[in-house]
Amino acid sequence: MIGISLLVWTIFVYMAMRKLYARFYFPLLVPIATSTVVMIVTLSIFRVSYEQYMTGGKWLVHLLGPAVVALALPLYQHRHTLKQFLWPLLCSTFFGTMIGMGSGLLLARLFHLPEQVVRSIIPKSVTSPVAMDIAKLIDGIPTLAAVYVMIAGIFGAMFGPSLFRMFRITTALGIGSGLGAASHGIGTAKALEIGKKEAAISSVAMTLSAIFASLLCPLLLLL
């Protein structure tokens, strides 16, 4: 019962936060960030554990699978654009994945983080199911990896558009591949707000980086 009411509350909070964002359009107010904060505050006030919340929240998680499948539609609708830019997309996401994992590894070592944390940070740029698998494979902590994935996603959705504006990155290919490669599904959700073409490119970038990361990650740690 508590799960279902929290599920309804989640939907309500999301709708309200979307309205708020549409009104002010300020990066710190992206719905994924504000909704998360409101939900965590709600759960803390009523002393509900994450586990209890998930008895209702799992229904939304169940829809995440088919939603990823649904990304085939923008992919199909923009197949001509994708064909035209297949090589640039392959190259940029390949280097993006390398830069993402490499810089994560180097910076984490530089800050002297514990080894298990380092290994959980490495796959942060890829979609959470893949990131968790990678973390398991390289002796990181899967749930911790998922947390870093979420931080990378939320941060990208918040500040990605400002970063693109600052460096005059305005093309669909620049915006879409940047969001998808750095912030996976949450970045793709943000790209959908910008345009369908950006979203199609973002979902390709997200898929490619997931594939590249799972192939490259075991190699990276050999270094």
């Binding site: 280097f95 942060k124 970063l163 620049g174 940047g178 912030s183």
Partner: peptide, 20 residues
Amino acid sequence: VVVISTTIVMFFVGLIGQWA
């Protein structure tokens, strides 16, 4: 670390995409 690394990826991939 996650925030810095995410920014670097977003910047480089965005730039390569734009250039291409």
